[in-house]
């Protein structure tokens, strides 16, 4: 193995650049180093001004998503040695506006998330808690996969529909809606369907499937969206066939 590897990092400093530009760096190539370690090496040793988000460095906080050689990746879980002999191309996550260097603006997602009501909705308003809601391991398993989303935004970066139509609610938010729908403790699926049945909801999705393939936590947002389409279609058929009084 070579001692070093070239990293081509997209830089964008609003006070200096009119548009993002690639800049070449050379970093040590070590088996245990991730792309994030490479970036931290650049920041510590070569250029302090390089800006990127990171925190837990163990693939759970969701901060450090970037496009690595064109693919959305968590840089703390992507190893430099897998790209040897290089170069490794690091760009800000696709489909989001760039604030600076490798930092993108995810305000859009933060505004969309509450719209799908990702919390437990109940008919009964329990104020005094005297025990747990019973939930069998099977009932837990029904939604578990969709509860693994770390909001890392890789699925939004991989989704061409979101790239072309920023109004699309998007994979992670829909997967989280499905997570609560499938939770045996929840009664809110009707409310969420009202949101997702809209044009910017599930129907925006044309089933590219990339959201699922890039997901580092195996959440399968594409599957969640297809399930929602089925629910939405059933709802439309019901609305068409049944008189108002009989609809739920």
């Amino acid at each position: 193995m070579d001692d070093s590897i070239a990293m081509q990092v997209t830089r964008y400093r609003p006070d200096k650049n009119s548009q993002p530009v690639p800049v070449d760096y050379e970093v040590p190539l070590r088996t245990e180093w991730t792309v994030l370690d490479g970036l931290n090496h650049i920041k510590a040793e070569q250029d302090e001004t390089l800006s990127f988000r990171w925190s837990c460095r163990m693939g759970i906080c969701g901060s450090c998503g970037m496009n690595v050689n064109g693919e959305p990746r968590l840089t703390c879980a992507t190893f430099l040695s897998d790209y040897a002999p290089g170069p490794v191309r690091v760009e800000p996550l696709a489909n989001f506006p760039v604030v600076k260097d490798l930092i993108v603006d995810i305000t859009d997602f933060m505004e969309k998330l509450p719209r799908v009501k990702p919390w437990i909705i109940r008919d009964d308003d329990v104020t005094e808690i005297d025990g747990e809601y019973i939930q069998t391991p099977e009932e837990l398993e029904a939604y578990q996969q969709f509860s693994m989303c770390i909001n890392c935004m890789l699925c939004y970066a991989a989704c061409p529909v979101y790239g072309l139509d920023p109004d699309f609610v998007g994979p992670a938010a829909i997967a989280l809606a499905e997570r609560y729908d499938l939770d045996s403790r929840d009664r809110g699926s009707r409310e969420r369907l009202d949101v997702l049945i809209e044009k910017e909801g599930v129907w925006g999705c044309t089933f590219v499937g990339e959201c699922t393939s890039v997901c580092p936590k195996h959440v399968d947002p594409a599957g969640a969206i297809q399930r929602y389409k089925l629910k939405a279609a059933q709802e439309s058929v019901k609305a068409f066939l049944l008189p108002k009084a009989l609809r739920r």
């Binding site: 064109g70 506006p97 760039v98 604030v99 993108v104 061409p160 790239g163 072309l164 590219v208 499937g209």
Partner: peptide, 23 residues
């Protein structure tokens, strides 16, 4: 609103990646 750079998506965005092309 955060000042930011909006990247353009080219007409041929789908030719650069196999999965997009197949789609």
């Amino acid at each position: 609103r955060v000042p930011s750079y909006q990247r353009r998506i080219g007409v041929f965005w789908w030719v650069h990646k196999r999965s997009y092309f197949l789609f």
